[in-house]
Write a protein that binds this DNA or RNA. Structure first.
Length: 487
RNA sequence: GGUCCCAUCGUCUAGUGGCCUAGGACAUCACCCUCUCAAGGUGGAGGCACGGGUUCAAAUCCCGUUGGGACUGCCA
């Protein structure tokens, strides 16, 4: 349980909430990088499941599978906080015996009722010296020092001071006997010999309480476990500058995985939230980030999670893939029946018997630089696999129904396509160009109705390459179908 | 309300007293390329919240103001 060669021991301690919050993902990344900077570093996953309402097994699965996706394999764990229940109770017992804790039977309403208008909020210490014993309605509170200051030596923010008389006598164990997060977390960190507590800024106000508890535990147990370094990371916020919330915002890491973001790109983007690599290049390999990362360099101010930038960055990663890798990695989105994992938020875009892996392999180079996520592939290439293209009515009306040249172009195209010698992109390009010329139209105008008839839309992969792959028969058949379409 | 944190282009950031006429990236605009859409290329617009100090010199240090935010549970 000790660090190998005195390396850092860090941990992320998510509570199971049903999904893996992107903020937790970033915290995991920063912790993981610190662990990887030292050969003896240890990265621990501890699931804080002490509250029974947050103790669903599948929720734990959301944590482990996202961690796996991100590539942050824990060196220890996953531990369950709930497994240490008896250790927490023992710690509470010891602390109580040594006088650091006292029983309190005040209800929230009672505390509230005693409060003079304008009095400081929080518990007033009413039971501090009443010498209550354990009972069905007694919670255990920590006897906070009334004088002095507790300073949090924060690696990103510097020293943050809290006057002890501003820290209320907080509850450490419920009247049910269940030990609360405040103590459980500290006891676990102490037990696990955590050296760096790296977490979100929302925990900064908890830090002095935890430091007090840590010291009390050291004294009570007569074992001086060194206090960890603290590092409170800037919050991730939404466009309203509010902390990213599960209710309002797209915070589930799984969502990004389902949409077809690459974990490497996602991690790279996450690192940029509150930190930046040296130099002007933002797309950097993980190994470089691990090398350059310093908690001291982390920004102090909140960061907006910008999906647009994430998406751009993902596009860059996608384009950097060689074509085989691109094809392989996109499988869950184009041939989910053949891949081990499939996105949970969508149906297969077409039936297995409609899909043609060889054809897809030839289509892929056409769309690799046109998509930013794997999820965008299917809508762009579906006309290759569906029996009939899905027609965009607006586009159809614009370039075929309502364009004076529309039908003429389609008729001319059929005529020329039937005569094309070798059915390859270059010949088709030439054929359509000539057709356009004969009607006094630029190629960009001439190709539009054909594109719409065959692919269903006005945007997509290069037309002539697409026609080549589709074949003469299908192409002509679709152009005919468009001509026969009512309206 | 109390405690605490924060403040450079719309966004993420570089900047740690002179190298700043404030750099990069995303987004945005224009142009080029072009069979559509992208990608790519070139260029543009856009920022040190405000007010006082300190200093020969401040985006950088100090104070205040304003503005944001977190916490304030017998949740984690």
């Amino acid at each position: 349980m000790r660090s190998k060669a005195g390396g850092p021991r860090v941990r992320i301690a998510p509570s199971p909430t049903g999904m893996f919050h992107v903020g937790t993902a970033r915290t995991a990344l920063f912790n993981w990088m610190i662990a990887r900077q030292h050969p003896g570093g240890v990265f621990i996953l501890r699931i804080e499941d002490t509250d029974e309402s947050r103790n669903k097994e599948e929720w734990v699965g959301a944590i482990t599978s996202s961690m796996e996706w991100l590539g942050f394999t824990p060196d220890e764990g996953p531990y369950r906080q709930s497994e240490a229940r008896s250790a927490h109770e023992a710690a509470a017992f010891l602390l109580r015996r040594m006088g650091y804790l006292y029983y309190c039977d005040c209800t929230t309403a009672m505390v509230e009722a005693r409060k003079a208008p304008g009095a400081p909020p929080g518990y007033d210490g009413f039971c501090r010296d009443r010498g209550l014993e354990r009972d069905v309605d007694t919670a255990l509170r920590f006897r906070t020092p009334r004088e002095g200051v507790t300073v949090v030596h924060d690696l990103v923010r510097g020293d943050v001071e809290f006057a002890n008389d501003q820290i209320e006598d907080f509850v450490v164990a419920k009247s049910s006997g269940d030990v609360l997060y405040a103590l459980a977390n500290v006891n676990d960190d102490r037990h696990d010999r955590i050296t760096h507590v790296i977490r979100g800024e929302e925990h900064l106000a908890n830090a002095p309480k935890q430091i007090l508890l840590w010291s009390a535990l050291n004294a009570a147990a007569r074992e001086d476990v060194p206090l960890p370094f603290y590092a409170h990371l800037p919050l991730l916020v939404n466009e309203q500058r509010k902390k990213l919330s599960k209710r309002r915002d797209a915070v589930a890491t799984e969502l990004y995985r389902d949409q077809g973001y690459l974990p490497e790109a996602f991690v790279n983007y996450l690192a940029l939230l509150g930190w930046s690599p040296r130099g002007d290049e933002e797309i950097v390999p993980l190994s470089t980030m691990v090398e350059e990362f310093r908690l001291e360099d982390v920004s102090h101010s909140p960061a907006f999670f910008d999906v647009k930038k994430l998406t751009h960055m993902n596009g860059e990663y996608l384009r950097a893939l060689d074509i085989e890798a691109f094809i392989a990695a996109s499988a869950p989105w184009v041939a989910p029946w053949a891949s081990g994992w499939r996105p949970s938020d969508r149906e297969a875009p077409w039936r297995e018997d409609q899909f043609d892996a060889e054809l897809y392999a030839r289509v892929a180079p056409l769309i690799q630089e046109r998509v930013a996520t794997f999820g965008e592939i299917a809508p762009m290439v579906e006309f290759f696999f569906l029996d009939e293209p899905r027609i965009d009515e607006t586009a159809f009306a614009k370039v075929i129904t309502n364009d004076a040249n529309g039908r003429g172009l389609l008729e001319g195209a059929i005529e020329r396509f039937e005569k094309v010698g070798e059915w390859v992109a270059a010949s088709l390009h030439e054929a359509v160009a000539e057709l356009g010329e004969s009607m006094g139209l630029a190629l960009r105008k001439a190709q539009a109705p054909i594109r719409c008839a065959v692919t269903g839309t006005l945007v997509g992969p290069p037309l002539f390459e697409s026609l080549e792959l589709l074949g003469r028969a299908t192409t002509i058949e679709r152009v005919r179908a468009a001509l026969e379409r009512p309206g």
